[in-house]
Design a protein around this nucleic acid. Structure first.
Lengths: 206, 206
DNA sequence: ACTTTCAGATACACTCCTGTATCTGAGCGC
DNA sequence: GCGCTCAGATACAGGAGTGTATCTGAAAGT
């Protein structure tokens, strides 16, 4: 099967981006040369510079694609879920997918975070991804609280941000002390938060 | 005041380490050359190689020093605190100190995390620091729960790990969406967790 | 089928980094 | 004070990465 010219162009960009995310996870953004990226994708440096202005534009493209992908996946999950349990199980499956490649996934996340830390202009791009994740959590939490007859949370954005931060922080702790964190720890901790939040809401209503 | 030879040697290592941690935070471990480290410390590359075998040994030394420092500071705080409030306020002050240089502190932490991610043999060194931090939290939480007449927590290690993970995760969320996280968010979230934990313990006892 | 076009390859000139090998001069013992 | 020692400086050889300028060959258009 032959590819048309513009199909081929898209294909090249796609391969280069895939190769770059692998290498960024393995060796870091700064530790990866353009040559290595091109080589793993099956091209030469010339092809790279024909498709990207340089490493910076590549990172921005990578970030954009990741954000867009997360948006689609999460929105699709929220739409597909028929019940609270279904949605939470979907969200957990999503997390578990990441957990499979755990270390390299965490590595890429940290690399991109550091990149955003040093290039403030692209922070909104990364922040957007967090917001999508939090939104999905908001939806899951909302349904869960309703199921418990606890009513909708008082401040859903804040709660989902906290839940998200907790899950994220646990990934790091798991890397450093794997014995202290297992798959259940995250769900247990989140349940704990929800219990407390529900109680708080009840109290407020009184 | 003249320095003796071995004083001078220690001094040089100290300056190089300080210079390195600044530069690692600014540009990353991979993005910093030995020359830049030596230069900022006021030396040349020759001096660096006289004191360290290479970048790897430098990072290990840096990690060791940081861990040791955290241990001392935290232990000293636990010993000095006279009450639950005192200890929690001390712990918060400690965190606030970091928050002042926030971004560069977070950058260095993430850099070292990534370094440990790619060099598994040094993970225990970084993990040790986390354990010290968690221990301090354990102590604070224990006193707080006692003060509330809630009795000691059922699983203090787990709770402090969760609290620590939450605080850590909030730092990242704060970087990306500063408007959603302020100084109080962390304390509020932790209070929430403690409430819930205390309730859980009470329930277990019934 | 001849030409145009453009994706990707090749080649080059340049900068930066590394690690070692050698030099220098200030502290210290005698 | 004289010479030894060692911290730190200087010099060098080599490797790797960057970005651009130029080349090539296969689609696409007529």
């Amino acid at each position: 099967m032959r590819l048309s010219r513009e199909q081929s162009r898209e294909e090249t960009r796609r391969k280069l981006l895939a190769s770059a995310s692998e290498l960024f996870a393995e060796r870091g953004v700064n530790g990866t040369s353009i040559e290595q990226i091109a080589e793993r994708a099956g091209y030469t440096r010339g092809a790279f510079y024909g498709n990207f202005d340089g490493k910076h534009e590549l990172v921005v493209a990578l970030l954009t694609r990741r954000t867009e992908r997360a948006r689609e996946e999460l929105a699709e999950m929220c739409g597909r879920a028929t019940s609270s349990e279904h949605l939470t199980s979907l969200l957990h499956a999503w997390h578990r997918d990441h957990a499979e490649h755990q270390e390299s996934w965490l590595a890429l996340r940290l690399e991109l975070l550091l990149y955003a830390l040093r290039n403030p202009e692209i922070r909104p791009l990364l922040a957007q991804r967090e917001l999508f994740a939090r939104d999905a959590i908001t939806e899951g939490v909302r349904r869960e609280l309703v199921r418990r007859d606890a009513g909708p949370p008082a401040d859903p954005k804040l709660l989902s941000m906290i839940v998200h931060a907790l899950e994220d922080g646990l990934l790091v702790q798991r890397l450093l002390t794997p014995d202290d964190v297992d798959d259940r720890t995250a769900t247990d901790a989140v349940t704990l938060l929800l219990d407390s939040w529900a109680a708080l809401d009840t109290r407020k209503k009184d």
